[in-house]
Write a protein that binds this DNA or RNA. Sequence first.
RNA 1: GCGCCCGUAGCUCAACCGGAUAGAGCAUCGGCCUUCUAAGCCGAGGGUUGCAGGUUCGAGCCCUGCCGGGUGCGCCA
Length: 561
Amino acid sequence: MKPQIAELLSTAVAELKSQGIVPQELEPRIQVDNTRDKAHGDLASNLAMMLAKPAGKNPRELAQLLCDALPASELVDKVEIAGPGFINFYLSDASTSSLVKTVLEQKQQYGRSNEGAGRKVQVEFVSANPTGPLHIGHGRGAAVGDCLSRLLEATGWDVTREFYYNDAGAQINNLALSVQARCKGLTPEDAGWPQDGYRGEYIIDLANSFMAGDTVESEDQSFTGTQNADDLEAIRHFAVAYLRREQDLDLQAFAVDFDVYFLESSLYSDGKVEETVKTLIDNGYTYEDDGALWLRTTDFGDDKDRVMRKKDGGYTYFLPDVAYHLNKWQRGFEKVINEQGADHHSTITRVRAGLQALNAGIPKGWPDYVLHQMVTVMRGGEEVKLSKRAGSYVTLRDLIDEVGRDATRYFLAARKADSQLTFDIDLARSQSSDNPVYYIQYAHARVCSIFRKLAEAGHSWSEEQGLAALSALTLDSEKDLIVKLGRFPEVVRNAANNREPHQIANYLKDLASDFHTYYNSEKTLVDDVELRNARLTLAEAVRQVIANGLDLLGVSAPQEM
RNA sequence: GCGCCCGUAGCUCAACCGGAUAGAGCAUCGGCCUUCUAAGCCGAGGGUUGCAGGUUCGAGCCCUGCCGGGUGCGCCA
């Protein structure tokens, strides 16, 4: 509804310009806000206050002139000037009716838009090292990244979800050595245990599986344990394949699907790393010092230069990172969003600097980043730090097993990503209105239940009848509910543009609350056929919007609880 | 020490591009089931938005400086 109101105001501004009241050259950004207080109508604009100074008039006077210049519209019942110069709009029954109609007509499409116009965007998220099960931080990344992807899809973008596996480098050697030690029966307490070796129990399972000659199948490879504890190469392959499969299963349980799994090792085997080094050297941004090859990232805003090739001849992670992002660019992703833990924040400047040094025509601020802060897990009022299986951290699987997929997804996506998050297991498990997931799902199930009751009572309802009866909705609570439904498309757009999936969660909680209140105060299945059909129509619209919203979060919308 | 994030009710969190009297839930206290699911609803109390300045018609939001918490500052990823 906002765009329509903005349009009216725009016309009024043009009128005032032609009267010479507002300077011609002024192009005000027309802002229409939701009102917080019903006494201020349904929508409000601060336009008069914005224009007051350049027009040399006081705000209220200008507001009056704007109101006088507003074209007539059947969407608006009345317009008021209030406070320091706000213009308040009261929506008409015709406009609320049309909102309900729009919801029912568009169904699953309601709230979606085509702002992205089919342009390509890549969202890289999770990107865990294949050195252990996914932990809760990865879970947050998965929830936020997937919801963000869904939001971008809902706003018309062509989204590619991508997972980058750091399956090369030092940490993989460490993994292989840890598994090998377990194959040989060593424990972390023994003298021969590798320094900084992985101590989790899953390493024992992995070693046992390797020594049993199991075969690990994943999407793109199959590898059989050779049962030879001295064959470190075989152990390495097996371990990586094993843990990738394990992470895939975790993600499956979380209902997150990736389009592309990109292997760091492929950058080496395809010669991309070498190519990147060569370009950087050719471009003159490198130098050798202390036996290592450095990139002058300070030329591009970094606070110190970075080593690309170590003294021992191996590359640091930094170089494949640059090669990888060049590859993304070459694949045609003009927009890339990397969702990662804020503890990896320092890579941002580095990667962007490396990309600039390639002189590849990549924009300075490319790619975008969304960072999420740490997650703390609470149970019984105490912090949970360990999982049996992983040893040092809480796994995503533990959470899904304990509180379920829907609640886990909701809780991890419902908070602003750049705030630290406390995950309360007791709350997430509780099946009461304390738990926002159940609260929202229950609102959906309630509508379904009403329709079941309707059928049991031998009555029927159709969209056509319902829409025709809408004028029977005369209560303030009904109008408020409809206005809230009308905000959904804008909430989706804001959430997508600001990369803030939590806005969807907040909106849904709010809508569910309004619906529960309404449900308790007004009976839907009344004897008056007109009123019954009208209320059923409103209920169905609410159900549709909740279902659409939950879908954006990747949370199910149950028919009954 | 430097960079980044955060600081809002006892607790967990909102506040759409800077808008009007800062909102929910939990917890506390008090109500509501013969009625479409009580997995719900209604009401009450609870705030100097960490502190101090600044910008302006207007600041929780923007700027500066402090204070507190987190995180990063590897030839680890």
